[in-house]
């Protein structure tokens, strides 16, 4: 039986609205979670813009590349339910690495920082998305799936499933989820990902399946003794969507303009966030080391560099 691809994101939009309304009221009644109107407005405008931005041309570029890739590849995976499942798992692994690189390399961080730039963690934070990162991300990280033989419509469909899955995990209302947490990404796991506490940095990059973090050594469980503090290392001093969207790109441009060598240009552009030639800024690795020094403990596990200028967690 061939599989059909409904536009599930469009169908989900009313559900987003209802769930946000429920969360606002429930957060107030239970004290678990909080909202700030201007922060939510910024997040939702970013989400709105992220849907409009690809219409300026990027969508056609991605489409053309996907179509060309599908025409060129000798592989053709049949359009069946099991192929969709396989594509979903492959896409989730793709997402893990894309997401991890988005934290470890400043060029990609400049787009992804938007999603982490709120000090709040609620369902509107899930919608705080980049205006600038979707084209390159799709071309670099999704085209291989098409080359593997998955139909472009299938790749787009599983991407939508991943997007929808990652919406509901942005909440403080849901505590722990028992054995479900062994395999799947959950609100608890993702709270850790959005936290700036040194011991939580560089952790839990998963989209749907948390098994990738467990496999690649980046899993960190939420500790009840240490409440996550959300945001980025250098939190933004404004709710202005233009600043939210472009501040890190401006930061890169400023740094590159003052670079004294090509090595510095490369470091400022593709090094870990917080990289500087003289080490005067802090990468997440340095933040963890500082935390360990101060607390006299071994540096927290989960190992990749992440961090400063924009200081800093879904696609």
């Amino acid at each position: 039986m061939e599989f059909e691809y409904p536009d599930i994101v469009s169908y989900a939009v009313p559900a987003f609205l209802v769930l946000v309304i429920i969360e606002i009221i429930a957060a107030r009644l239970t004290g678990r979670g909080r909202y700030e109107a201007r922060d939510s407005a910024a997040s939702l405008i970013m989400g709105f813009g992220s849907q409009i931005a690809p219409l300026l041309g990027g969508l056609f570029v991605i489409g053309a590349v996907f179509v060309a890739a599908y025409e060129l590849t000798p592989f053709k995976i049949p359009n069946t339910w099991w192929a969709v499942l396989l594509c979903l798992v492959a896409d989730d692994l793709r997402y893990y690495w894309f997401h991890r690189i988005s934290h470890e390399r400043r060029w990609f961080w400049a787009s992804h920082v938007i999603h982490h730039s709120s000090q709040h963690y609620n369902l509107t934070t899930a919608l705080r998305q980049t205006w600038t990162g979707n084209i390159l991300a799709s071309l670099l990280f999704k085209t291989p799936l098409v080359f593997m033989g998955f139909h472009p419509a299938m790749v787009a469909f599983v991407g939508a499933i991943s997007l929808l899955y990652q919406f509901w995990i942005h909440t403080e209302l849901i505590d722990r989820m028992g054995p479900f947490e062994w395999i799947f990404n959950t609100p608890s796991h993702h709270r850790v990902h959005h936290a700036t506490n040194p011991r939580y940095l560089d952790a839990n990059y998963a989209g749907i399946l948390i098994i990738w973090d467990r496999m690649f050594g980046t899993f960190t469980p939420e500790d009840r003794a240490e409440k996550p503090r959300y945001g980025i290392i250098k939190n933004l001093g404004t709710f202005n969507p233009l600043v939210i969207s472009f501040h890190e790109w401006i930061g890169i441009a400023k740094d590159v303009s003052q670079a004294k060598s090509l090595k510095e240009v490369a470091g400022y552009t593709f090094g870990p966030p917080g990289w500087s030639p003289d080490g005067s800024r802090l990468t997440s690795k340095m933040i963890k080391e500082r935390w360990a020094r101060i607390h006299g403990e071994a540096a927290p596990v989960s190992s990749s560099p992440q961090a400063e200028p924009a200081a800093q967690p879904a696609e």
């Binding site: 061939e2 599989f3 059909e4 691809y5 409904p6 536009d7 994101v9 469009s10 169908y11 939009v13 219409l55 969508l59 056609f60 991605i62 489409g63 053309a64 996907f66 179509v67 599908y70 359009n79 139909h151 472009p152 419509a153 299938m154 787009a156």
Partner: peptide, 26 residues
């Protein structure tokens, strides 16, 4: 939408694969 424009839309997909709630962007 772009898949349809490229003539590569899923042959079994229904009309709902248009990336829009109402079909009108505005």
């Amino acid at each position: 939408m772009w898949l349809r424009l490229q003539g590569l839309s899923n042959p079994t997909a229904s009309e709902t694969d248009n990336k829009s709630m109402t079909g009108n962007l505005l």
